[in-house]
């Protein structure tokens, strides 16, 4: 360990494999990958916070639509029934399964909405060139750590599987909430593509 290390502020450890890197400041469109495990460490900076911010706002609006409009409706032999996303989650609520209803509601509606809200809280001052608000580090860390538990996109694919299972039994029609959910997934993918985690951490660290 006798190699002279650069000052500790200039070092970055890969969160995946712990390889130590000295990161020079990158140009607008450069990315940095871990030399050992190949995971992306620094994404291009050119995509500004403003794009992510506007996508997060769109996602919030779509989420509101997805919750309050009808989601799917079914009809067969003169019987009909419509469900909202809320009612889908409540499918487990009439027995001892009730906690599962709450969990489903958490992972498909509450958590995605909270993550978008947290992202707006973090990025609003940064996009306007101001220092981050209080507890921005905590909020953004929660946004990042809750990522695996945010399952809106899995829910949409689940809808497709459910439709296949119902098959010829009944005819199904999609409500506005279904399309809102689909748009939400696309907006979320765009947000992930535009967002540079390392740039946000750097901005929070400076503030």
């Amino acid at each position: 360990m006798n190699a002279p290390l650069p000052p500790i502020e200039d070092l970055v450890a890969c969160p995946h494999c712990d390889a130590l890197h000295h990161l020079p400041s990158l140009g607008e469109n450069e990315r940095a990958f871990c030399a050992r495990c190949g995971s992306l460490m620094v994404a291009p900076r050119a995509r500004s916070f403003l794009q992510v911010l506007s996508l997060a706002f769109s996602a919030m609006i779509l989420m509101a639509a997805a919750v309050f409009f009808p989601f799917l409706s079914i009809s067969s032999h003169g019987f009909g029934h419509a469900s909202s996303v809320f009612e889908v989650a409540m499918a487990f609520s009439d027995s001892w399964y009730a906690p599962l209803s709450l969990a489903v509601l958490m992972v498909i509606v509450a958590l995605p909405a909270l993550r978008f809200a947290g992202l707006i809280y973090t990025l609003w001052p940064l996009a306007n060139g101001r220092p981050p608000w209080r507890h921005a580090a905590f909020v953004f860390r929660m946004v990042e750590e809750s990522q695996p538990w945010s399952m809106a996109e899995i829910f949409v694919i689940g809808t497709a599987v459910a439709l296949v299972k119902i098959g010829g039994l009944a005819s199904i029609s999609f409500g506005p909430a279904f399309w809102a959910f689909c748009c939400l997934i696309i907006v979320n993918v765009l947000k992930n593509a535009y967002m540079s985690k390392s740039a946000i951490w750097e901005a929070i660290g400076k503030g």
Binding site: L72, V88, A89, A91, L100, V104, F155
Partner: peptide, 27 residues
């Protein structure tokens, strides 16, 4: 996380398929 899809399918089916005596699905 994608394994959770089965749980969502059950939720969707049992909330949607409530067609009186034609068919009802419960989890």
């Amino acid at each position: 996380r994608w394994s959770m899809i089965d749980v969502f399918v059950v939720a969707i089916l049992s909330s949607l398929v409530q067609l009186g005596f034609v068919a009802t699905i419960h989890p």
